[in-house]
């Protein structure tokens, strides 16, 4: 990450708390210095590198952290939202078993965006794929188009959502890469929660970032790379 970007992120981190000055008991004067961020930049490409060698079978910490952060119930019936799942796979010829978390891969050429009739499915300049729920009509084409089964439909009315993560009945949703955290200089909840540091998050375009250095030096693959969607999420050890 360039120095300038770093400064901006640090600035955002420190300035998000609304600065309030008391002008009289019980009265607050909000200072005009409240931040208006510059927005997502196309110079950045957010991504994750998941090391399946570090991911322990049976561990579900990333999933639990995601559910807690985004207010998902944690149920896994077909009608429940799941933004991230643990998957166990076995190579039948060798018997080697591995376990890995799977979520929206934040494709550079996302089929979910191609098929959306309302422009609700969209990709931000920094590569994060989101659903604009103000526009989503719940047709679920994107769920069918996504080769990674990453999306869920909200079937029931919800209450008590996270103020940072609006979600509602009749719309489709998926991993947002914790965009509300990223925009204030944080990282996704799953990456933060993993006890084995198996999920590295960062800017793939910044050659000095941990993730860019790592993808340069170790072998990693994209799942279903043959589809040429160029996902921002990559895996090691599969």
């Amino acid at each position: 990450m360039s120095d300038m970007d770093m400064d901006r992120r640090n600035f955002l981190k420190t300035s998000v708390g609304a600065a309030a000055v008391a002008i009289a008991p019980g009265m607050l004067l909000y200072s005009v210095a409240q931040a208006k961020s510059e927005g997502a930049s196309s110079k950045v490409r957010w991504g994750m590198l998941i090391d399946t060698n570090q991911c322990k079978p049976g561990c579900n910490d990333c999933v639990t952290a995601c559910n807690r952060e985004n207010g998902l119930s944690g149920e896994t019936k077909s009608t429940d939202s799941q933004w991230i799942r643990k998957i166990d796979i076995k190579d039948i010829s060798t018997g080697r078993e591995i376990s890995l978390p799977m979520m929206c891969q934040h494709c550079e050429n996302p089929p979910c965006v191609d098929v959306c009739p309302t422009n609700a499915s969209m990709k931000r300049a920094d590569g994060i794929v989101l659903v604009d729920k103000h526009r989503c009509i719940g047709c679920r084409y994107c769920m069918m188009a996504c080769p990674y089964k990453a999306r869920s439909f909200v079937h029931e009315a919800l209450t008590d959502q996270n103020p940072d993560v609006p979600r509602g009945k009749g719309t489709v949703e998926s991993c947002t890469l914790c965009v509300h955290r990223i925009d204030v200089g944080g990282k996704p909840a799953c990456s933060e929660a993993c006890p084995n540091k198996a999920i590295v998050f960062g800017d793939l375009n910044d050659e000095n970032s941990e993730i860019a250095q790592k993808v340069r030096s170790v072998a990693s693959v994209q799942v279903r790379a043959d589809l040429r969607l160029n996902p921002g999420v990559r895996y090691q050890g599969i």
Partner: peptide, 19 residues
């Protein structure tokens, strides 16, 4: 504000619903 925040990532703290 909602379109700017969601689609462009421009979060205007001063005029946000949360504020």
């Amino acid at each position: 504000g909602r379109d700017d925040a969601l689609r462009l990532g421009i979060r205007d703290e001063k005029h946000s619903l949360k504020t």
